[in-house]
Simulated assay, not measured.
Amino acid sequence: MTLDLSTSQELQLRLDPVASEDRFPSVAFDVEAKFIMPFQQTTISIKECWFSHADLNRFEEELGNLCREETGTAVLLNMSGVPIVAVERCNEEITTRVQATDTVGIGKVVLEVTGYPSEVPVMLEKVREYPKWW
């Protein structure tokens, strides 16, 4: 079942589960972020991106904190400690950042979209409602 973190028509953010590992409590998602504007579109696809269950739970907790606080950040790190999704709040402005970094350190792609504080509770609710097996 896809975890759809999209909060606007401009930014579509989806995590599709593709594998899980019980020995190291973790799950792999194909991550896709699309930035859609009238005359342009950008897509970032990250295949089989592994997240620990603890990091997924921490991301949910940090999103909850962002709902209550004027400033802060919720970051979803992959198992290598690289931030894949970051949601930053600075008063009435939200910045969602999706980052794809290659495994040998040659380069990275970052998609950054500005939004509104009302989007954070929507994202949190989607994470909370996602059927977790961890």
Results as ranks from 00 to 15, higher is better:
26 S>H: 02
15 L>M: 15
48 E>H: 10
128 R>Y: 07
124 L>T: 10
55 D>C: 08
122 V>H: 00
97 R>Y: 06
60 E>V: 00
10 E>T: 14
134 W>E: 13
60 E>H: 11
34 K>V: 12
20 S>R: 12
21 E>S: 13
96 T>S: 10
8 S>Q: 05
48 E>D: 13
119 E>L: 08
23 R>G: 07
115 G>D: 14
125 E>H: 11
116 Y>D: 15
129 E>P: 13
38 P>F: 01
65 N>C: 13
82 V>F: 09
122 V>N: 07
94 I>E: 03
114 T>V: 15
57 N>Y: 12
61 E>G: 10
90 C>K: 12
127 V>P: 09
92 E>L: 11
54 A>H: 12
97 R>G: 02
73 T>S: 13
51 F>E: 05
75 V>L: 09
34 K>N: 13
127 V>G: 13
32 E>K: 06
40 Q>D: 14
108 K>A: 09
25 P>H: 05
63 L>N: 11
33 A>S: 03
32 E>A: 05
107 G>M: 02
9 Q>P: 05
81 G>K: 08
108 K>N: 11
112 E>H: 04
38 P>C: 03
112 E>C: 09
121 P>R: 02
44 I>M: 02
36 I>L: 11
119 E>Y: 08
12 Q>D: 11
127 V>R: 12
6 S>G: 01
119 E>Q: 09
46 I>E: 05
30 D>G: 04
9 Q>S: 13
111 L>W: 10
50 W>T: 06
27 V>G: 09
70 E>I: 02
103 T>F: 00
92 E>G: 02
128 R>E: 15
63 L>S: 06
41 Q>G: 13
31 V>F: 05
56 L>I: 10
30 D>Q: 05
62 E>L: 11
56 L>E: 03
94 I>Q: 02
54 A>G: 04
132 K>R: 14
41 Q>Y: 02
80 S>G: 05
37 M>I: 09
113 V>Y: 07
32 E>F: 00
22 D>F: 13
109 V>L: 07
21 E>A: 08
32 E>Q: 08
33 A>H: 07
16 D>Y: 04
113 V>M: 08
79 M>Q: 00
43 T>S: 08
69 E>D: 07
8 S>E: 00
115 G>S: 14
104 V>H: 03
129 E>L: 15
47 K>D: 12
110 V>K: 01
29 F>I: 07
12 Q>G: 12
80 S>Y: 03
70 E>A: 11
51 F>G: 06
63 L>K: 10
33 A>F: 04
46 I>L: 11
25 P>I: 07
40 Q>T: 12
59 F>G: 10
96 T>Q: 10
104 V>W: 01
118 S>I: 12
101 T>A: 01
15 L>P: 13
100 A>S: 12
18 V>Q: 08
103 T>D: 01
130 Y>W: 15
84 I>R: 00
73 T>G: 00
68 R>Y: 03
59 F>T: 07
83 P>I: 11
64 G>P: 03
85 V>Y: 09
47 K>F: 06
5 L>M: 06
55 D>H: 14
37 M>Y: 04
107 G>C: 01
